[in-house]
Design a protein around this nucleic acid. Structure first.
Lengths: 110, 110
DNA sequence: CCCGATACCTCTAAATCCGATGTATAACTA
DNA sequence: TAGTTATACATCGGATTTAGAGGTATCGGG
C-alpha cells in the first residue's frame, strides 16, 4: 500500500520550473519539505538515471574550473505529463489514506 | 522517503471504533479507500501479530459452528495513543509531499 | 463438482531502501 | 596543518519490505 515512485515524482517536481543538478535537487526537496522528505544518494542517482533513460529528463554536463562538473537535468514534455499524472495519483492516494486514518471525508482543494 | 508503518496505522484506524477480525479489517480498509488501498494477507497477518505483540491490540478467538473460527482484534489504550501519533506523522508527511509536488502551501484542515 | 467467499496462516522471490564506500576539490576550523 | 564539512558525481550490498503464491478448512452458488 506504500506510495510507489514517490522519488521520481518529487524529482520531476523539483526541476519543473528550472533545470537543476542532482545535488541541488536533493537539497531542494529536503528544504521544500522542511526536512521531512530526504533520501540518500543511493536512491537519488539511480532514480535520476531511470528518469533520463525514460525520456522524462534530459541531462547536460556543465564543466567547472577546478570544481567537479555538474550534470544539469531539465524536464521534458513527457516528464511534464508524467508529473501531472503523478500528482493526480498522489492526491487520490493521500485522500484515501487520510480518510481511512481519520474516518473523515476530505475535500480535495489543491 | 516512503511513509513507513502505513499498514500498522491503517489497521489501528480500522479497529478504532469496534473490534474486527483480520479478514474484515482488510475488507474495511479496501472499501473505505474505494479500492485504492489494499494489501495481501502476507502483509496483513504479520502486521496483526506485530501489533498484538507490541500491546497495541488484544486478540480473542471466537469459535463458530461449522465455520472457521475468527480472531477478534480490539484496540488498547497504547494502540489508541499509537494511532494518534501515526495520524500526526501522516499529516506531516502528506503535507510535505503535497507541498513538494505542487509547490503550493497546503492548509492542514483535518 | 468446482469455484469464490470466508478465515486463518507461512514462505519466499523480487524489489526497494539506505548507509557505506569511492573519487575529487574548496573552504573553514581547531 | 590536519580534520571536517560542503560540493558533486557515482556504485555496491546488507537489511528490510512487498506482494504473490501456497497451505488448510467450510459453505454456498452456478
Amino acid at each position: 500500500m506504500t506510495y510507489k515512485n514517490g522519488i521520481e515524482a518529487l524529482i520531476l517536481a523539483a526541476v519543473r520550473d528550472e533545470p537543476l543538478h542532482g545535488y541541488a535537487i536533493s537539497k531542494r526537496i529536503r528544504l521544500d519539505s522542511g526536512g521531512v522528505l530526504k533520501f540518500g544518494e543511493g536512491q537519488l542517482y539511480p532514480a535520476l538515471h531511470r528518469l533520463e533513460e525514460g525520456g522524462m529528463l534530459t541531462a547536460e554536463w556543465l564543466p567547472q574550473e577546478g570544481k567537479p562538473p555538474r550534470k544539469l537535468y531539465a524536464i521534458t514534455e513527457a516528464g511534464n505529463s508524467e508529473l501531472e499524472r503523478h500528482v493526480g495519483q498522489w492526491k487520490q492516494f493521500a485522500d484515501s489514506v487520510g480518510q481511512a486514518l481519520t474516518g473523515t471525508k476530505e475535500v480535495a482543494h489543491v
